[in-house]
Design a protein around this nucleic acid. Structure first.
Lengths: 219, 219
DNA sequence: CGCTAAACTAAACATTTGTTCAGTATCGCT
DNA sequence: AGCGATACTGAACAAATGTTTAGTTTAGCG
C-alpha cells in the first residue's frame, strides 16, 4: 500500500471528526464547528491542522463555506446516500474448492446474502483463504474474501486476486509481465507462481479480484 | 400513504439540481449557486422555491451555510413480501460516533443488510475503527467491525471489545481486574485505558463485543 | 373582472464562515 | 542555546451565504 504520511494526534482527531461529520450530516463541517468540537479557543488552531491535512493529501479545499472534501476513498462506506431497502441485498455463493491436476472444480456450498454496498453490484463469490501467503498484507489463513468474478485487466495495477490451485484457494498480487501472469505472495517463503497463457493445465487458476476481506474474530 | 405532493417545474428543476450537486460535490449547493444555475437574478427566487420544497417534505434546512439536506423519499424499508432473502438477512446499523466528555452519542447512519450467518442472530452494529491500537492483532485503522451490543461477562475470556472515546471508535482486549475494566491495545505505543465502575464520565465506553472484521481491499 | 398562487426582480441586512496577522509555548533535534 | 515543527490564543477582516422586505408579472379560476 502507498503508505500515507502519518498524522499527528490532533490531525487524526480532526480528520476522524470530519469523516464522521460528513457521514452523519451529509455536508462538511465548518471551521468553527471543528473548533467547538476540539474545544479550541481560536479558529486558527483548526486552520493550521487543516493546512497540514491538505498538505498530506487527506483533504482538499475549494472556495466557499464548508469546502472540505475528504480525499480518502478507501472509506469502504462513502455513505452519502444509501437508504436501506431490500433490493440492496445480493446472494453471494460461498464456494468450496476441489482441485484435480487435470480439472479444477468449484462448488457452491451455500448462499450468503450481502448488502450490495459490499458487493458493489458486481458478480461476486466468497472464498476461504487456505494459506498464509498474504500474511504480510494482512490477509490471514481462514479469512473469507469477497471476490469479484472477472479476469484482471491491464489497467488493474497492484490488485489482489484469488486463485485456486493444489493448495485450495489462495490470494496473491497480480502482475502481468511478458505475456505471463505472475502471482506473487507477500511472504518471501511462498514461491511465485507463473502462469503461461498456453498452458493446458496451469498450476493455478485466477478466479477473480479481491474486493474485501471478512474475518471471524470471536471464537 | 402520504401522497407526495407533486412539484412545479421550477421546484422539480431545483430539486434535481440539488440532488446532482450533492452527488457530485459531496456537499449541498449554496443558494447563490442555485441562483446561477437557474439564471435567476434574485436569490429570493431560490429562497421561495426552497421554502416550497421544505414545506412539501423534499428537503430540510438547518442553520449555517449550505444547509440543505435531501430527505429520503423512499418510505423506510419496504418489509414487503417474499423476497426469498428476507428471513436470512438482518439490518445492521452503521454507527457514527460523537464523543463529548460528558455525554457520548452514537447515531445510525444507515443500515447494511447482512446474512444472519454473519450476525449470528445477535443484535449487532457496525463501527469503523479509528486508530491503530490493535494493529498487531490484525485489526487496522478504517476496518469495519461487526459488534454485538452487549456488556462482556466474566466468562468472556480474552474477547475483543469495541469502545467509543475521544478518538472515535476503538477496539481493545477486555480484561476485568480488581473491579475495573482494562482496555488493552496490542501496540505498546497505545496506553491502557482503565475504567472505574463508579466513574461518572469514563474515558471510554464499551459498546459491545467484536464478532468479526470487514475490510475493503480494492481501492 | 378580481383573486390568488407561483414566479420572479431588486435591494438591503445579518450571520456565518474562511483567512490572516501577531503572538506564546512546548518539544525534539542539532 | 538556537531552530523548526506543532499547537495553540486572540483579534480582526473580507467574502460567502441565508434571510427578509417591497414590488412586478403571469397564469389559472370562480
Amino acid at each position: 500500500m502507498p503508505e500515507q504520511s502519518s498524522l499527528t494526534e490532533s490531525q487524526n482527531k480532526i480528520f476522524n471528526f470530519i469523516t464522521r461529520y460528513v457521514a452523519e450530516h451529509k455536508r462538511p463541517p465548518s471551521v468553527r464547528e471543528i473548533q467547538k468540537q476540539m474545544k479550541y479557543k481560536s479558529t486558527n488552531a483548526v486552520a493550521e491542522v487543516l493546512d497540514a491535512l491538505e498538505k498530506k493529501g487527506y483533504i482538499a479545499r475549494r472556495s466557499g463555506a464548508r469546502s472540505i472534501e475528504i480525499l480518502q476513498q478507501d472509506d469502504l462506506m462513502n455513505f452519502g446516500f444509501g437508504s436501506p431497502a431490500l433490493d440492496k441485498v445480493a446472494p453471494v455463493p460461498l464456494m468450496s474448492v476441489d482441485w484435480f491436476a487435470k480439472g479444477e472444480k468449484m462448488k457452491p456450498i451455500s448462499n450468503l446474502y450481502l448488502d450490495k454496498m459490499l458487493t458493489q453490484n458486481r458478480e461476486c463469490m466468497l472464498l476461504r483463504v487456505d494459506d498464509d501467503g498474504m500474511e504480510k498484507s494482512g490477509i490471514l489463513k481462514r479469512d473469507m474474501v469477497l471476490v469479484e468474478k472477472r479476469e484482471p485487466s491491464a489497467s488493474d495495477k497492484d490488485v489482489l486476486v484469488a486463485a485456486i490451485c493444489e493448495d485450495g484457494a489462495i490470494v496473491r498480487s497480480y502482475r502481468f509481465i511478458n505475456e505471463r501472469v505472475h502471482l506473487v505472495a507477500s511472504s518471501r517463503s511462498y514461491s511465485e507462481r507463473v502462469i503461461n497463457p498456453n498452458e493446458k493445465f496451469p498450476e493455478a487458476l485466477v478466479v477473480g479480484v479481491v474486493l474485501s476481506l471478512f474475518r471471524n474474530i470471536l471464537r
